[in-house]
Design a protein around this nucleic acid. Structure first.
Lengths: 256, 256
DNA sequence: CGACTATTTGATAGGACTCAACCTCCGTGG
DNA sequence: CCACGGAGGTTGAGTCCTATCAAATAGTCG
């Protein structure tokens, strides 16, 4: 049907991410790959999980970007999480509940799935795998809490700066950064829906960050021009991402 | 040391809450109670879990109110969750990570604990118990997401109204409502720290809700004067709390 | 090139914050 | 018994941040 080689390539972000949470043996990695159903490619703006429905499988973003969001009766919507390659769409499969949010792609994406029963077997036989997924869930929750802090306590500039720092750390664990920057296929409206800002104000906030020489934009590429100062204005502390490395901001400081 | 009778009484909210998530046999309930270490009483404003530390046990609020919060370098703090009787303080014990938030009591409280190893045994032997805790964790997460929506998309009045609706549903599952109201031992400053509002504005928002005859306050007792209209202005939908009952707002409508 | 989507700019209004003062309630202690 | 102090609640005035509305300017893709 398909070579295991090509599947390796597609599933790399998942494995990389899980390995950042727990050490996995070759056998464990292989088992995960075997449990993974053939990925499907979906285009941007596709709903891959629907609010109110249950999942019989665990859904994983293998490439591309997606978001969890919830629409309100007044027409507004709030994005409650961004999903990057390696991320699990919803941990609700564990409790068998309906999703309380929808998950939608924001770019072309490869979507992988692991059937629930396969996952249960996997988690029972390989504690390290279970641990890795549990940690992923814990980080997922911590991110949500940190967003809550952003919306509750940070100004527009701080929120935006914080988001850029967060993306930097998250994308760097799956090797999706280039130097001190990364490709971010989000529209300003999509950022606004996550940061609780109007599109207009997102635009002005971005300008302010550029004026302050904290970031620069070339198309979809975001370059963090001064990570230290960016993290400082955002009150960003990577600890909540499960990042052990205190020197995160120095990693790419020399590259420009 | 102590009679099992008195322990029953203290642990009632926990059992009641878990039973709202899954059906538990008498044996299962008994096992939970046996696993529960003798509760300790703490006074208000006591830190019962500390940011950056790990837990070796699962901590449960048996009576009183508490909150998860995180302080920022600039002095502000954000409350990321309110904990009411029956609530588990932190689900991070599952992954063995350090807490990313602190948990502090807001009133005198009874705190129960279950040692991690006891819990693991319990969850392995009694799937219903595991399921109940998993659902509790899922609801906990859903609440956080709903708060995110509040901070991102709702006005001060809507946030406040939403919070009052949420408390009503949460407290009613542990039988802590009286008619269409409940005791809420929070200061306005504490509400502000959760809703992302200044204390002054909390005060004015409360006045507006009272002027609109949506709620009334007698000391610490909050009376929901018009639940339907309150839920309407808040865009409140109890589904995310795992509440199956669509008629939640009618339950106490006749009582005044 | 045209249709669409995304970004940018300008002007105005309003929600929420800050600062500052005052009031009310309670528990303490002289 | 009353004076005192502190915590919490209330009010007022002024400011700032962010939303809204509207329109113009890029980009992009068939």
């Amino acid at each position: 049907m398909r070579t295991s080689g090509s599947q390796w390539a597609e599933a790399a972000p998942l494995i990389t991410k899980l390995e950042s949470h727990a050490t996995l043996s070759n056998e464990e990695k292989l088992r995960i790959l075997q449990a993974l159903a053939p990925p499907r490619v979906v285009s941007a703006h596709t709903e891959i999980l629907t609010q109110g429905k249950k999942s019989t499988a665990l859904t994983i973003i293998l490439s591309g970007f997606a978001c969890r969001s919830k629409a309100l009766p007044d027409g507004h919507r709030q994005i409650t999480a961004y999903l990057v390659p390696g991320d699990i769409c919803d941990f609700r499969f564990l409790s068998g509940d309906e999703h309380d949010c929808s998950v939608t792609t924001m770019s072309t994406a490869d979507i992988g799935t692991i059937a629930l029963e396969d996952f249960v077997v996997l988690a029972e036989h390989y504690p390290a795998i279970a641990r890795a997924f549990l940690k992923a869930a814990a980080v997922d929750e911590a991110i949500t809490r940190e967003w809550l802090i952003s919306l509750g306590q940070r100004t527009a500039v701080q929120r935006m700066a914080h988001l850029f720092c967060e993306f930097f750390v998250r994308l760097s664990t799956v090797h999706l950064t280039r130097g001190a920057g990364y490709d971010l296929p989000l529209t300003q409206a999509e950022m606004g829906a996550a940061l609780g800002l109007s599109t207009v104000h997102v635009n002005r906030t971005l300008q302010e960050l550029r004026r302050g020489k904290l970031i620069s934009l070339k198309g979809k590429f975001v370059a963090l021009e001064d990570i230290t100062r960016l993290a400082d204005t955002a009150m960003f502390d990577p600890l909540y991402l499960g990042n052990e490395n205190k020197d995160w901001s120095r990693q790419h400081q020399s590259l420009h």
